[in-house]
C-alpha cells in the first residue's frame, strides 16, 4: 500500500523502571481499519494503546499518526524533546479514547459530559454543542438519559455515554482500552453493538479486548502481544484459527476452555 498509514508504529519500547513493557513493537493501522490487540494481561497491549495518544510516553521508536510524530518534536531520535502541552493537546483532540473504567465525570450530567470537551477544547457555543451532543447520544441510543447523572446509569449505559463523549468530538481515530472488561456479562452486548456500528461506518479503530467474538467478526486484523512484542499479526481469522505460534494457540485454547465449559 502506498498511502500513508493512519497509525504507523515503529520499534516502540517502553520501560517502567527495570520492567520492559514494550520491547520493539511495530504495527501499521490503515484508514477505516479495525485492529484488535489481544494477549494475556501484562503483555503490554494496554500500554501500547496508551502510547498511541501519549497518555503514556514511549521511550524509543516512533508512533506516527497521519505521518506526524506523536508526543515528540520531530527530530533525530537521540535529541528529540517531548512536545509542548499545546501541541500535544492539538494532536490528541482528533483521537477518541474509551477507557475500561469509563472515566465519566460524575458531577456532570450525561449531556454535560458529552458537551464538556466540545465547549472547552473545540470552543463551540453551547447551542451547537448541545445539538452535537444529542446527535452523539442518539447514535449510542441514550437520548432519554441525557439529563441523568452517570452514577445512576448501568455500566453498559455509562460506557455508551463515554463512547458518545468521544464520538461527539468527531475523531478520525478511536482507541478502546478493554471497553467491556468491567461490565456485567449481560451488558457487554450493548456496548459491542455500538462499536460494531462504528466499524461499519468506516471508523478507524484500535481495540484492546478479551472479546474473541468481537475480534473474529468485526476486526479486520488481530495483533497478538506477548511480553511486550507482537508475536503474530494478520487477518483475524488467520490469527485466531490458523496461528502457528505456540503462545497464541495456548492462549486461545485456555480462552476456549473457559468459555465453552
Amino acid at each position: 500500500m502506498n498511502k500513508v498509514p493512519k497509525i504507523a508504529i515503529r520499534d516502540v519500547c517502553k520501560r517502567f523502571g527495570t520492567l520492559t513493557v514494550l520491547d520493539g513493537v511495530s504495527l501499521d493501522v490503515h484508514q477505516s481499519e479495525v485492529v484488535c490487540l489481544i494477549g494475556a494481561s501484562g503483555s503490554g497491549k494496554s500500554t501500547l494503546l496508551r502510547c498511541i495518544n501519549f497518555l503514556e510516553a514511549y521511550d524509543a521508536g516512533e508512533i506516527r499518526i497521519d505521518g506526524h510524530l506523536m508526543g515528540y518534536v520531530d527530530a533525530a531520535q537521540k535529541q528529540r524533546r517531548p512536545m509542548s502541552d499545546r501541541m500535544l493537546r492539538q494532536a490528541r483532540r482528533d483521537i477518541g479514547f474509551v477507557f475500561q473504567q469509563f472515566n465519566l465525570w460524575p458531577h456532570m450530567s450525561v449531556i454535560q459530559n458529552v458537551m464538556e470537551p466540545l465547549l472547552r477544547v473545540r470552543g463551540l457555543s453551547a447551542e451547537v454543542a448541545v445539538k452535537r451532543g444529542e446527535v452523539a447520544l442518539d447514535r449510542v441510543g441514550l437520548t432519554d438519559k441525557r439529563n441523568s447523572y452517570p452514577l445512576r446509569l448501568s455500566g453498559g449505559q455509562q460506557q455508551r455515554v463515554a463512547i458518545a463523549r468521544a464520538l461527539a468530538m468527531e475523531p478520525s481515530l478511536m482507541l478502546f482500552d478493554e471497553p467491556t472488561s468491567s461490565l456485567d456479562p449481560e451488558l457487554v452486548g450493548e456496548v459491542l453493538q455500538v462499536m460494531k456500528g462504528l466499524a461499519a461506518e468506516g471508523m478507524t479503530m484500535v481495540v484492546v479486548t478479551h472479546e474473541m467474538g468481537f475480534a473474529a467478526h468485526v476486526a479486520d486484523r488481530v495483533a497478538f502481544l506477548d511480553r511486550g512484542r507482537i508475536i503474530d499479526v494478520g487477518p483475524s481469522q488467520q490469527v485466531l484459527h490458523e496461528s502457528k505460534e505456540a503462545r497464541v494457540q495456548q492462549f486461545l485454547q485456555t480462552y476456549h476452555d473457559r468459555t465453552n465449559f
Binding site: I95, F99, N103, E116
Partner: peptide, 15 residues
C-alpha cells in the same frame, strides 16, 4: 482516571 479522560480530549491543565 477522570483527569486522564479530560487530557485525552486535549483539555488544558487549567481547564
Amino acid at each position: 482516571g477522570q483527569i486522564e479522560a479530560a487530557s485525552s480530549f486535549g483539555m488544558t491543565s487549567f481547564q
